[in-house]
């Protein structure tokens, strides 16, 4: 087997040995080859890491969906998206389902008749929970700290998942002319908030079918605003103010009806871009995740699905509504 010239010189024994080592060109070639290999491998490694994160995220949604079902098993109803406003205590669905997903120790001291930002809940809500965090979100362990005119601030650790409360009729601004929703359509979501006509969320209310209705989705990265991958840092002091409302995992701002295009501070401008998955994480808009090309969803039957950004908006509406008489098909 022929050796490279430099190497043969280096191996020769005897007094005639004059030159040894590698030439500059040889070293450069080796470095270039190594660089090329790294450049080839890096995207594959990154893709594998993202696949792992996406699967972790899907697992979180699965656990949460099962917790909703265990709640339903125990109380014969899913929790409300937001606790009943006629009773004391502002809390969302999270502290209601956490006992069913092995977070009893966390919620043991939680008082559901007290607002989430008030003690004893305040110090519990500061807990960063990997269960409600999508690992693909660039900034992990975020904290909502919203100033209030009367203290204390509304402060709590942030989550990346929410329960779509339904569809807002403003979505007609975006739906094609032949797919407009009627003003009388029932656009409630699986996990709806309290209304006189909706005192509770029962599995039987999901007449479109549990397998055809979204229970949980991603709205990642709140309270920073994200619009198509561009981050606008949460800012309560500048003009316009910047906020993707509903960051903390216990806040009653967590659930919303999808289909709206209004920023939290109107002066920040209407939400640009095409309304759909991964356009903006602002309150009331749609779903937002940091997975390339789509987002994870937990359906009401406990299954987890990945829907792409190209998902037809009417199909998404059909999936979010629980009893509009249009079981989503063709997905």
């Amino acid at each position: 087997m022929p050796y490279p010239r430099g190497l043969r010189v280096a191996c020769r024994r005897g007094p005639a040995r004059t030159v040894h080592g590698f030439t500059l060109v040889e070293l450069l070639v080796v470095i270039a080859i190594i660089g090329l290999l790294i450049a080839l491998l890096l995207p594959a490694v990154q893709a594998a890491r993202e696949a792992a994160r996406r699967s972790q995220c899907a697992n979180n949604l699965k656990q949460l969906a099962l917790a909703f079902h265990n709640h339903e098993e125990t109380y014969k109803q899913f929790p409300l998206a937001i606790s009943d406003p006629n009773k004391p205590g502002k809390n969302n669905w999270a502290p209601f389902v956490f006992p069913f997903v092995e977070q009893q120790t966390l919620v043991a001291g939680y008082n559901l008749t007290i607002d989430w930002w008030v003690e004893p809940n305040r110090s519990l809500v500061a807990t960063q929970l990997p269960l409600v965090q999508c690992p693909s979100t660039p900034e992990q362990n975020r904290v909502q700290d919203k100033p209030e005119t009367t203290p204390p601030n509304k402060t709590g650790a942030c989550g990346d998942y929410f329960t779509p409360a339904g569809v807002h009729l403003d979505i007609n601004q975006v739906l094609p002319a032949d797919q407009q929703l009627a003003a009388t359509a029932d656009l409630r979501g699986v996990i709806r908030w309290y209304e006189a006509r909706n005192p509770q969320n029962r599995a039987a209310d999901v007449t479109d079918g549990l397998s055809n209705s979204i229970m949980l989705g991603e709205c990642a990265g709140r309270e920073d605003v994200w619009r198509r991958g561009t981050r606008y840092a949460n800012d309560f002091t500048s003009a316009p103010k910047v906020r993707a409302r509903g960051g903390a995992w216990a806040t009653t701002d967590n659930p919303y009806e999808i289909g709206q295009r209004k920023a939290w501070d109107t002066a920040f401008g209407p939400i640009p871009g095409q309304l759909g998955i991964n356009n903006s994480n602002e309150w009331g808009h749609c779903f937002y995740a940091f997975h390339p090309s789509g987002a994870n969803f937990a359906l009401a039957d406990g299954s987890v699905r990945f829907l792409t950004e190209q998902t037809n908006l009417s199909a998404l509406v059909a999936l979010v509504t629980r009893s509009a008489g249009e079981p989503a098909s063709g997905l």
């Binding site: 601004q173 975006v174 295009r261 209004k262 109107t266 002066a267 209407p270 095409q274 309304l275």
Partner: peptide, 10 residues
């Protein structure tokens, strides 16, 4: 257009 032009007044 894919969506209707929209604005909020100041």
């Amino acid at each position: 257009a894919p969506q209707k032009p929209l604005a909020y007044t100041d």
